[in-house]
Design a binder for these strands. Structure first.
Lengths: 145, 145
DNA sequence: AAAATAAAAGATAAAAAACTCTTTTATTAT
DNA sequence: ATAATAAAAGAGTTTTTTATCTTTTATTTT
């Protein structure tokens, strides 16, 4: 198990990649993104179609088409990407899978999980898609394999 | 997505239940555990077989048989249960799924995830299976549905 | 020894997640 | 208008996870 689903990992890596490649305003094709983040091309295509429908990335068909981002999408918090793909199960909901778990009727790990869930949520709310472009440009960080 | 797999959620709930029901030293059957934690009986049986092989729970066949725990297993940290079922992917490994991600060649969220992973790990190391028995006995916490 | 009990083991089935391939639609450039 | 390009959409397949059912093995009680 990892924190995010595979789909969500690809989604986050893809939006980082697009942000980093479209600062100048131009577009980047699915093939280039897929190789750039080491993901299966057609599977990623499905994911980006979905993110596009939800307005998290922009896309254009035809020659010189591809995926890109505008100032507004670059400022969207990471939590928007995660929620679009994996839903909010990571932030709400019981760590032990109990639907009835609540402050009143808590599971044994309720308090412990509250802290962890809050940490994850805050991290994803504080960070925006565009925040990571500079380090990628500088080669400090990396999205491949 | 939730933090743990369904299997792991059942496993944790089951060990809590067994700990809580076997303080007095007696054994509890798979049927009783399954209804006590709202899990599918045969699926849970598989999980407990595995935990039993790994020494995380004890079991005995035949009349008056069932699952139980001794002092030693009650003191084992929760992380042992999680690692037995879900592996250590939650504590080690990259949040974005990059196998090559490291301090030297980090993914963009490397630092952010380091904190979260450490939180989760510490929580699971600090808490033991037996730590939750009292609250369950008092009816403060709950393992059903 | 025989019957009853309960976990272990084996074999299968259903559902969800991950992944692939093909066709269609929109856009641009010639 | 035509050809070329690239995403969108549709229709699968494969793998993993979750779940069920049946048979076997070990243990206890009578």
């Amino acid at each position: 198990m990892s924190i995010f689903s595979k789909t969500c990992e690809y989604a986050i890596r893809a939006v980082f990649f697009i942000a980093h490649r479209t600062e100048s305003g131009d577009r980047v094709g699915i093939k280039e993104i897929a190789t750039g983040i080491s993901s299966p091309e057609h599977f990623l295509a499905k994911i980006l179609q979905d993110l596009s429908r939800r307005g998290i990335v922009k896309s254009a068909k035809g020659p010189n088409g591809g995926f890109y981002m505008d100032e507004q999408t670059l400022r969207r918090p990471l939590v928007d990407v995660v929620e679009a793909v994996d839903g909010n199960g990571l932030f709400v909901g019981c760590g032990l899978g109990l639907v009835s778990c609540s402050e009143k009727k808590p599971c044994p790990l309720h308090a412990e999980f509250a802290v962890i869930r809050k940490n994850i949520h805050q991290m994803l709310v504080k960070t925006s898609i565009g925040d990571f472009t500079e380090d990628l440009n500088l080669g400090i960080t990396n999205l491949k394999k």
